[in-house]
Design a protein around this nucleic acid. Structure first.
Length: 803
DNA sequence: ACACGATTCGTTTTT
DNA sequence: CGAATCGTGT
């Protein structure tokens, strides 16, 4: 094996070979690429993180770069943290010198260092999604925006979308009145944020982008510094993030920039709905004239029945770069396919199967995942698991720093840092209640508006009893600020939650025990944030010179930055962050875990989206039905179905040993029973990898009523409680281990319209019935008309005739 | 200011 | 069906 890097010392050759030994040929090639732009197409389970971290380690080990020359970008804090952990396990390097973090974390770091250039207050605060929404609502009220015509949620979506595309209000093309108004509001929102000294997530990116765009010397500084930029999950980057990378590194011919190593998998692009642009991969190859493209197709996770299923499914997508996973692990068990009569039955069956997995097959509970397309589906599963006494853990709820009581406490802390933060001001000005009602606040807002100042500054100009109460509130915050000067973070937070009356307020509430506990937990979180400082801080701008390059040019120890330009904007001011400021940033950028269920060995429940990047010994993909998965709402945009298929691909490739695919004939949705066809994805899987293990019972009449069916599961009372239409005798096969017959009669028969049938509509013409739901006058049918698309039609209204 | 009925509206989500 | 929000009444 030959390496084309500069002659290393014998010691580092040894060390390198130790690093490189566990790699396969593809991985090795990727890790030891020359310092040029490269794209790694890393299939699921192909050792992507290993390549990324080994690449960094190898670059350092062979002396090609110093820690300061490394920039590694990820999407989640978890991924960033994992990279740091694995890297430090690989070699004793100063991880601190490197910039490893999320896009937003790194942008925050930029803006903290260059707050003046970015025209931000030094103490700017970060709005999370909730804060942003409430800021928009407030704005709408102030400017009398019709909230029916312009729902705040939609405005939020609009603004975030603009920023993801790198557009300021002035850049948005206006086609119609509605857009014009939205853009106006966007502009007003921007002004409000600027006045209050707050930035939302999109703004962190956009402001950082503009900073680089508009300041050539800053841009040059970073381009010279970062010799190697590594981007994880590149398929998830949006337009702005890619533009940011282009500025930060520079296109070929633009001089001093380093090399980008982008790692991604177009088949796992499942975030187009929030602005991700898979096209960035192709653009990257073109614009950076990428000469090195490597596919990692060796999978170390799953048996081939699982992998072949994934391969076959994804091959139905038209727009892909093309990639086929392979494994040496042998076929393994077949993929099991299960059909249930109802979502309750499905849940019950899952519970029984899980029990068997644990009892007989020695699966650990935490190695079993139940996946679903939408979070609403977790409820039935939870109920069944709960009744069976199984410990389980649901991902995707409120996270720690998003809880109301925590946000209240943080709002006080933020006000101490930045009194102009009106969002925080309004959150706690009357919480706990201190006699400042809506009337007083309106009055205050009028004053603030007239004076063009923050609510905090307007207080002194407010008179009367309201004025006195407000003055008292402001005084309290001011006193807290003074009292906590020089105190430790723990002491500060202790003092705040006590003196503001937060803890007492929740103590007095009958349901408040959890909230008190959470507030105490906040104190602990602060404590460990301070003591662990230096670990897991990758996404956070940290105090005291950890931002090497932001030191003044005269100072020593700039890593990886030999030729330093005299840039006086790089003041040390942005670097000296108080522990409190750092903690607030941490809270905003890292919302924390959602309640860890006591670290128990528990079954894992999560949406397919949330499962990306994880793996389990056994995976159940539930609710594989038309309309649900693929989701009906996804069928509107043209890439919708393909993204659903990628989602399914992600789900399948989570499984190591055993995979179950489950669908149900009926499902409760919005309080109504829906009759669904099984997902089209079943037709896209290789027959020989599958095994149908649901007995093909004769529909509801016998299968449910008999209490026990051929599959061996017992019906619960819950199932029997379910109202059910009278089913026509269906001629379902009773064979157990065979492919299922084509979708059978699955609709209430009274109108004769059933899923799968061809119907005729006077206006839309001929179409195929996809689903039928409801009964009597509520009955609706979902019909796919070739010319007019998929429509829901009320059977009592629409004239549908069977063809 | 708050509590309680009425109503509305239901993908996916990280930062 | 169930949550989250809304509006009215005390």
């Amino acid at each position: 094996m030959t390496f084309d890097f500069e002659a290393p010392s014998s010691a580092s050759t040894l060390a390198s070979s130790r690093l490189l030994a566990p790699l396969n040929e593809e991985q090795l090639k990727a890790v030891t690429l020359p310092a040029e732009h490269a794209l790694i197409l890393a299939g699921a389970g192909s050792g992507k993180t290993r390549v990324l971290t080994t690449r960094i380690a190898w670059l350092l080990q062979t002396g090609q770069v110093t820690p300061g020359g490394i920039l590694a970008v990820t999407f989640t804090n978890k991924a960033a943290k994992e990279m740091v952990v694995r890297l430090s396990a690989m070699l004793p390097v100063n991880v601190r010198g490197m910039w490893i973090g999320t896009f937003h974390g790194l942008c925050n770091r930029f803006l903290r260092a260059h707050w003046q250039l970015a025209q931000l207050p030094q103490t700017f605060q970060i709005l999370d999604t909730q804060d942003q929404l409430s800021a928009i609502k407030r704005l709408c009220k102030q400017f009398n925006v019709d909230e029916d015509r312009f729902p705040p949620k939609q405005l939020q979506y609009f603004i975030a979308g603009c920023k993801e595309d790198g557009q300021r209000a002035a850049d948005v093309p206006v086609r119609d009145d509605e857009t014009r108004r939205k853009v106006e509001i966007y502009q007003l929102y921007e002004e409000q944020c600027q006045r209050e000294g707050v930035v939302d997530f999109g703004e962190l990116m956009l402001r950082s982008y503009e900073l680089l765009r508009d300041n050539a010397h800053v841009r040059e500084h970073y381009r010279r510094r970062f010799r190697h930029t590594l981007v994880d999950e590149f398929q998830d980057t949006n337009k702005l993030q890619y533009a940011w990378l282009k500025l930060l590194v520079g296109l070929p011919g633009e001089g001093s920039g380093g090399a980008i190593l982008a790692v991604g998998d177009d088949d796992q692009s499942i975030y187009a709905f929030r602005g991700a642009r898979v096209g960035n991969m192709a653009d990257f190859v073109r614009e950076f004239q990428v000469q090195h493209q490597i596919k990692l197709e060796q999978n170390y996770r799953s048996y081939s029945n699982i992998l072949d299923s994934a391969n076959e499914l994804i091959s139905h997508n038209k727009t892909r770069l093309g990639k086929t996973l392979r494994t040496d692990q042998g076929a393994g068990e077949p993929v099991r396919v299960v059909e249930s009569v109802s979502d309750f039955a499905e849940a019950q069956w899952l519970v029984d199967e899980v029990r068997q997995l644990v009892k007989q097959d020695d699966f650990e509970r935490k190695e079993i995942a139940l996946l679903y397309r939408s979070n609403a589906q977790s409820r039935v599963l939870e109920t069944a698991l709960f009744n069976a006494g199984f410990p389980y853990r649901v991902y995707g709820g409120l996270r720690f720093f998003e809880r109301a009581e925590i946000k209240h406490a943080l709002a006080y802390l933020r006000l101490m840092e930045n009194p102009n933060d009106d969002t925080s001001f309004l959150r706690v000005v009357n919480f706990p209640p201190r006699g400042i009602g809506a009337r007083s606040i309106e009055q205050l807002q009028d004053v603030a508006r007239a004076a063009g100042c923050s609510l905090h500054d307007a207080v002194s100009a407010t008179t009367g009893k309201a004025g006195a109460n407000l003055a008292a509130f402001v005084a309290m915050v001011d006193v807290l600020r003074e009292q906590t000067a020089g105190k430790t973070l723990r002491e500060i937070i202790d003092l705040v939650i006590d003196k503001t009356g937060l803890v007492n307020h929740y103590r007095a509430e009958k349901e408040g025990a959890d909230r008190v506990e959470n507030l105490e937990e906040l104190v602990n979180a602060a404590e460990s944030f301070v003591t662990q400082e230096g670990f897991g801080r990758s996404a956070v701008a940290m105090p005291q010179g950890s931002l090497g390059l932001t030191q003044s040019p005269a100072s020593q120890g700039l890593v990886g930055d030999a030729a330093d330009a005299p840039v006086d904007e790089f003041s040390e001011d942005g670097v000296t962050m108080s522990p409190l400021a750092a903690f607030l940033t941490h809270a905003a950028l890292e919302a924390g875990d959602n309640q860890a269920q006591a670290g128990e060995d528990a079954i894992q429940l999560m949406s397919v989206h949330a499962s990306k990047g994880l793996e389990f010994d056994a995976v159940f993909i539930t609710g594989l039905e038309e309309g649900l998965f693929p989701h009906e709402n996804a069928m509107n945009d043209f890439d919708g179905l393909e993204e659903e298929r990628r989602l399914m691909y992600v789900a399948i490739t989570r499984a190591r040993k055993r995979l179950y695919l489950s669908h149900s004939q009926t499902r409760m949705l919005h309080g109504q029973t829906r009759y669904n066809l099984k997902s089209r994805f079943f037709d896209e899987l290789p027959e020989h990898c599958l095994k149908w293990i649901t007995p093909k019972t004769a529909g509801f009449g016998t299968g449910v009523g008999s209490g026990m069916n051929a599959g061996g599961w017992t019906n619960t009372p819950a199932q029997n409680r379910q109202a059910r239409p009278a089913w026509g005798q269906s001629s379902l096969s009773t064979e157990t281990y065979k492919s299922p017959p084509v979708p059978v009669q699955k609709a209430a028969p009274e109108h004769g319209i059933t899923a799968g049938k061809q119907v005729f509509h006077t206006k839309f013409g001929e179409g195929k019935v996809l689903a039928v739901e409801g009964t009597g006058t509520d009955a609706r049918a979902q019909v796919n008309f070739p010319r007019h698309g998929i429509k829901w039609l009320a059977l009592s209204v629409a004239k549908l005739t069977l063809v």
